[in-house]
Structure formats: structure tokens, C-alpha cells
């Protein structure tokens, strides 16, 4: 579902997170000013090459595209009907370039590096009362606890099936929310016990 950091020692792994994110912003913006199929295809080949440089397998590369496959197809068909197949191809190439680049950065950058950079980038928001440290922590924790919440959901669903309750969103949501809140309580305790200060003075 989501690409996560895949450890390695390649040049792309070592590149500072800030540089990579800046590169993504620049590349993403420029992609929208390019409408040339040859240039966009060239860019796509370069991006695929970057996967090899980062020591990723072809399988990993395709795994990044799988979730957007249907969207890409629908976009292509719609665009092709309205504006011709060239326009359809341009849209699809742009999207694939962007997704693959963003995924490559996720794959080669640790969450902590990413959030440290983010923390630094949103420092100016400190003036309007936003705590950059908290925002970056929230993002790391969201990534950490996604697998746990999906596990809780699976457990609850299983327990309900065992009691003969089939698909009911309400019956599923209530225990999942309650267990998640209990978990959040425990996590807050554990963070406090490890010296985390929600409001340092």
C-alpha cells in the first residue's frame, strides 16, 4: 500500500533529505510546464535509472505504480477521448514521473531525516504558534501506527465474524475506535516515561 524506507548505502540514500525534497518540488513543478512526449519519456527513463542507482529491484519499481494503475488508465482514456491520445499520454507520463520520484524519495530517506527536514522548513510557523517539533512527531507516529491500527481492525473483524456479525461499519468502527483511543493513552504514557515533554518551558 505504502512505500516505506528501504535501507541501503547508495549515493541516493546518503543525499540529504532536504536536497531530495527540494529536487522533488522543482522536478514536480517543471513537469507541468513540459508537454513534449519525447522529453517526458526521457525523464521517465531517467527516473527508472535512478531506481537502479538506489539498488531497487524492478519489482519494487512496479510495486510503486500498481496502486495508481487504474487511475492512470482512466485518465488516459478520458483524456484521449477529449483531447486526443497525445494529450492522454502527456498526462499519464507526468503522473508516473511524479509518483515514481516521490516514492523513490520515501524509499531512500529515513522518516526521522524527512521529519527533521520538515521541522526545519516549517520553523517560521513557530511565530504563529505552531510547534514544528510536534508536527514532525505526529507524522512519524502516524507512519509507525498505521500497521498497528490495521492490525487492530483485522482482529476486531475476525472476532466479530466468529460471533456471526458480517459487514457492519458501525459494529466495526466502535470497538476499533475504543481500542485505538486506549492505545493512544498508553502511547502517551510511554512517551512521557521516556522524557517527552508535551509543553516544555
Amino acid at each position: 500500500m505504502m512505500s516505506l524506507y528501504s535501507p541501503g548505502e547508495t549515493a541516493l540514500h546518503r543525499l540529504p533529505a532536504g536536497t531530495k525534497l527540494l529536487g522533488l518540488v522543482l522536478a514536480g513543478t517543471s513537469l507541468f510546464f513540459v508537454a513534449d512526449i519525447v522529453v517526458l519519456s526521457g525523464a521517465l527513463i531517467l527516473v527508472c535509472g535512478a531506481y537502479l542507482v538506489a539498488n531497487m529491484t524492478v519489482k519494487t519499481l512496479f510495486a510503486q505504480l500498481r496502486p495508481i494503475l487504474w487511475i492512470v488508465l482512466i485518465l488516459f482514456v478520458a483524456q484521449a477521448f477529449i483531447n486526443g491520445w497525445q494529450a492522454g499520454l502527456v498526462v499519464v507520463l507526468r503522473l508516473m514521473n511524479l509518483i515514481l520520484l516521490a516514492a523513490l524519495i520515501t524509499l531512500t530517506t529515513r522518516v526521522s531525516e524527512m521529519t527533521d527536514t520538515l521541522e526545519w522548513a516549517i520553523q517560521p510557523l513557530g511565530w504563529v504558534g505552531v510547534d514544528p517539533r510536534k508536527i514532525s512527531l505526529v507524522i512519524s507516529m502516524a507512519i509507525r501506527f498505521i500497521p498497528l491500527i490495521s492490525q487492530i481492525t483485522a482482529e476486531v473483524r475476525e472476532a466479530q465474524r466468529a460471533r456471526g456479525i458480517e459487514k457492519s461499519i458501525v459494529a466495526l468502527a466502535i470497538p476499533v475506535v475504543i481500542r485505538t483511543l486506549k492505545m493512544a493513552d498508553d502511547i502517551a504514557d510511554a512517551m512521557e516515561a521516556r522524557g517527552f515533554d508535551a509543553d516544555p518551558r
Partner: peptide, 8 residues
């Protein structure tokens, strides 16, 4: 599970 705060 509830003590590990970071993904890695």
C-alpha cells in the same frame, strides 16, 4: 507495541 514510537 505501545512503547515503540518511531517506525525504524
Amino acid at each position: 507495541e505501545n512503547q515503540i514510537v518511531f517506525p525504524i
